[in-house]
Design a protein around this nucleic acid. Structure first.
Lengths: 265, 265
DNA sequence: GAGTGGTCTAGACCACTGT
DNA sequence: CAGTGGTCTAGACCACTCC
C-alpha cells in the first residue's frame, strides 16, 4: 500500500486539477479530511505540506487551506541589466519615472512597499571572498525589501554589498534616506566614476529560513531562489555583490544564449 | 518558546558547523535525540527533515542519519552551448573523445552510467505549446539519465522533444541504440541541415516527485531545478525543447551578461 | 466564543539494514 | 536477530481568525 499521506495528496491534487476545488476555494478542514480518509491529523498535515510546497494550495493559520490561483510567474531576465545601464545617462526626472522593480512586475510604484537599510560593517569571510577584499575590510551593507501591496504579488529580499572605499567619495551614497535612488545602483556607482562592464548571475535554490518564509509569504516547504549578482567594472574590479532571495514558486529565470554561426568562424 | 523541532534543528546545525559531528559521522539515533531533547519522535523527525532539505545530512533507511560532505556544486554555464556547437564540425573521433556531461563534471566516461530511451508519440498540450506545434503532432520523445558511478556525483534526468518531421530524414536519429551520439544533439540536428542559432534557458524550482527523488538521490524535501532549454534554429524555428531536472543542492547556474559600454552607443 | 490549523505526546507497527 | 528510520494513531493543547 502506498503511504497514506501520499494518497491523500494525490487525491486532493487530482480534485484540484479536475476543478472540483477552484482557485480561492477552501479545502475541507483538517478534521473533515481526517474523516474522509479515515486517518489521524498527522498524515493530513503532511499531505497538505506537500501541496503547499508545490504551490498548489496556501494555508492561512486560523482561517483554512485554500486553492491558490495559478499565478503568473515573474520572469527575470538579464535584459534588465542593459536597460538599467542605459538609464544611467538619462535625466533625473526620466530615471525617477520608473524603477527596475516596476519593470519586472508591471506594478505602479504606488502599489509597492519599499524599504531600505544601510549599515557600515567589516566584511566577514564569506562577503570578503566574493567581493575580493580581505575579511575585516570596510563594507557598505544595504538591505532592501520590496513588497507589493496588492494581494499576491512578488516580493524579494536583497542584501547588497559595496566596498566602502570605492564609493565614499560621494557621501549621498552612504545614506539610506536617498533610497529609492532614481536609476538604481548602476547610477549610484556612476556618480563615483564606476562603469559596470559585466554582471555575473549565480543561481541557487534552498529552503527558506523562518524570516524569509514570512517576508515572502511562502510556507517553510517552498524553496527559494538565491541569485548572487556580481558586478564587475571596466577595470575588472568587483564593485558590487548582491544576494537576492525570491520565492521559488513565483519566479522564473530566463537567459538567452546567442551562438556564433558556422560561417562566422 | 520557539518550536521544539526548530530548536532541535538549530542545535544540530550548530553542532555540525562546529565540527562536533564531521562529514560522514552518524548522528545520534532518533531515540537518542528524543532522550537528549526530551521529546517524542515527531519533532525529532521534523528537525531531521529540515536538515535534509538543507542538504546538511542524509538519511539511509535502516542505517542512520549521516552528516553530508560539503559537496562541490556542479556549475552549469551557457558556455557549454557554444562549445558544443563548435564541436559539431570536428571529426567523429574528436567528437567521441569527450561529451558534454564529462565537461560539466570532470568525470571520465567510464565512471558514468548513461541511459537513453526513445519514443515516438503525439504531442500533448504542454509540449505542443513549447515546441510551437499543434497538440497531436508527431514528436520524438527522448529520455536520458546520467548517473555517476562514484559515490555522490551529480545526476540529471532529461526529457528531450523533437518534431518528428524535422529530423526523420536521417533514420539514425530515431534509434536510441546510437546514443550516446558523438557530438550530441547539436550534431544530430546538423545531420539534417539544422543549425541552432540561439538557446533559451528557463530555470524553475519545485519539489521532486517520488521518482526524481529516488533517481537523483535526494530526500523529498530537497528542491530540484528544472531547466527548460529551447533551441531555435537560424530560420527562427523551435527545433528542440528539453527539460533537465537537477538536484537543487548540488547545482549552481552561472550566467554572465556583458554590457555595452557608454561610449559604444 | 467557535472554528481553524500548528505542534506535540507516547506510544505502536512496519520496512530496511546489518549480523 | 537487533537496530535503525518511516509512518501512523488518537488523542491533547495552543495560536490565530472571525464573529
Amino acid at each position: 500500500m502506498a503511504k497514506k499521506y501520499e494518497r491523500i495528496a494525490d487525491d486532493l491534487r487530482r480534485r484540484i486539477q479536475a476543478n472540483e476545488y477552484r482557485p480561492g476555494d477552501q479545502l475541507p478542514t483538517r478534521d473533515q479530511l481526517g474523516m474522509r480518509y479515515r486517518t489521524s491529523p498527522g498524515p493530513v498535515d503532511e499531505a497538505l505540506a506537500l501541496l503547499r510546497a508545490e504551490g498548489l494550495v496556501e494555508t492561512l493559520h486560523g482561517k483554512g487551506t485554500f486553492v491558490r490561483a495559478a499565478r503568473r510567474k515573474v520572469q527575470r531576465t538579464p535584459d534588465r541589466y542593459q536597460w538599467e545601464k542605459d538609464r544611467v545617462s538619462l535625466s533625473e526626472d526620466a530615471r525617477r519615472k520608473t524603477g527596475a522593480v516596476e519593470k519586472d512586475t508591471g506594478l505602479e510604484f504606488d502599489h509597492l512597499d519599499f524599504h531600505a537599510e544601510y549599515k557600515i560593517e567589516p566584511a566577514d569571510g564569506h562577503i570578503g571572498d566574493v567581493l575580493g577584499v580581505p575579511a575585516g575590510a570596510k563594507i557598505l551593507h544595504r538591505f532592501y525589501r520590496t513588497r507589493a501591496r496588492s494581494e499576491d504579488a512578488p516580493v524579494s529580499l536583497i542584501n547588497s554589498y559595496l566596498v566602502y572605499d570605492m564609493i565614499s567619495a560621494n557621501p549621498d551614497l552612504l545614506n539610506a534616506d536617498n533610497e529609492p535612488w532614481p536609476g538604481g545602483t548602476l547610477h549610484q556607482l556612476a556618480t563615483v566614476g564606476i562603469e559596470v562592464d559585466r554582471i555575473i548571475d549565480r543561481i541557487n535554490t534552498r529552503p527558506p529560513n523562518q524570516e524569509e518564509a514570512y517576508e515572502l509569504g511562502i510556507g517553510p516547504g517552498v524553496a527559494v531562489f538565491v541569485l548572487q549578482k556580481t558586478s564587475v567594472d571596466t577595470d575588472g574590479r568587483i564593485v558590487e555583490v548582491s544576494e537576492v532571495v525570491m520565492p521559488g514558486d513565483r519566479t522564473e529565470f530566463v537567459y538567452t544564449t546567442q551562438l556564433n554561426g558556422w560561417d562566422s568562424k
